[in-house]
Design a protein around this nucleic acid. Structure first.
Length: 345
DNA sequence: TCTGGGGTCCTAGGACCC
DNA sequence: TCTGGGGTCCTAGGACCC
């Protein structure tokens, strides 16, 4: 099993088309204006040396590294670059499961080639030759191990973790190093005295089920042990839903303007659905009040619709149920779709 | 750290039905 | 009917990932 992850993908795509940026601290995020509300999508390695990280507010990034080059997010460029990368990966004629723009699993059997590092290096070379982009490759006995191994190989490297080396490699790491455990869950685990991956692996299954739920508890324990039986799923991605949201540069006290934004967002979602020829079965509205308090409302439609006007009407109706005395920081509209397929008779 | 935008999945309570 | 239990749908919120 191999996991491929492009190195600083978004920043690398920008440097590829603007070679004069090579070697400079480059930050891609928002509209590229570090005085605006927005966060860092990707920082180049040179920018990371200043402490810049994905998810950091652009204003903070500019304070830490005023000389950085700030660029706007250009989704279309990353879509195109990602498609080229995935084409290279699919040329190896093994099942490929795509995760987002810049990651994929390849179901390369661990022992068929003897040394799995050989196909891994061939893939790295092919991606570089075909796209001009560098990547790292993780090798594992399953997806979880391969995914974690990739981080150890970065940048431009290959790294292998197996069931035999799992505990020596990551047994002492914090549980947050695992794919699927974030800050909140790591904190809950720490409250149970479970700090490291090895702690989690050795925890009692029933205790975890009691404290974290009958599904999630035992699943976390399997993560700790490096166990993952999920297959590489090469079936083409089909979205369950589409949403659009926007954070206002200034909080909005005027709810007529909020309603205008909801209409715009509903129209965009309508176009996204139309592009796929899918009907909405459910409409959701998200409102973030200032300073940062989020409410969501949603409704199953009486009948599936492809009409943007129906989406807008439903979203505005949901909006009418919220507290108009408060200022709004963000508003979002999303639609959930019926699974695709032949229309019911 | 004055905290984006696009997604997915899980949980839990209440409604509703048999 | 002072009152069970299971199944399923709907909704809100949370957690996580890229």
């Amino acid at each position: 099993m191999l996991h491929v992850d492009l190195d600083q993908f978004i920043a690398a795509v920008e440097v590829l088309r603007r070679p004069e940026l090579a070697g400079l601290p480059v930050v891609v995020g928002g509209r590229g204006d570090p005085t605006e509300r927005g966060v860092v999508s990707t920082a180049s390695y040179e920018a990371r040396a200043f402490g810049l990280r994905s998810g950091m507010p652009l204003r903070t990034a500019a304070r830490k590294c005023p000389e950085a080059v700030f660029l706007a997010v250009d989704k279309a460029a990353y879509d195109a670059a990602s498609a080229r990368v995935m084409d290279v990966l699919r040329s190896f004629d093994v099942p490929v499961e795509v995760l987002g723009w810049d990651e994929a699993f390849l179901a390369v059997p661990a022992d068929e080639h003897g040394d799995p590092a050989i196909p891994a290096e061939r893939i790295r070379a092919a991606v570089l030759a075909g796209t001009g982009l560098h990547c790292s490759v993780g090798i594992g006995d399953n997806k979880l191990q391969a995914k974690i191994a990739t981080d150890f190989g970065k940048p431009r490297g290959v790294y292998r973790i197996s069931s035999a080396t799992w505990f020596e490699e990551i047994g002492g790491r914090p549980t947050e190093a695992l794919w699927g455990i974030g800050r909140k869950t790591a904190q809950r685990l720490a409250e149970l005295g479970l700090h490291t991956v090895a702690d989690l692996a050795g925890a009692d299954t029933r205790m975890l089920a009691d404290r974290l739920g009958p599904t999630m508890g035992p699943w976390y324990r399997r993560l700790g042990r490096g166990v993952d039986s999920s297959p590489v799923d090469a079936t083409p991605y089909v979205a369950r839903g589409h949403g659009r949201e926007t954070t206002f540069q200034q909080d909005l006290a005027d709810w007529d303007l909020v309603a205008d934004a909801v209409r715009d967002l509903a129209a965009q979602v309508g176009r996204d659905l139309a592009a796929e020829g899918r009907a909405a079965v459910r409409v959701g509205l998200k409102v973030r009040y200032a300073p940062f308090e989020t409410r969501s409302r949603s409704r199953t439609l009486p009948v599936p619709t492809t009409e943007a006007d129906d989406l807008a009407a439903a979203a505005l109706d949901l909006l009418a149920g919220l507290d108009r005395s408060r200022s709004v920081r963000l508003v979002g509209v999303r639609a959930e779709m019926a699974p695709p397929g032949p229309p019911a008779t």
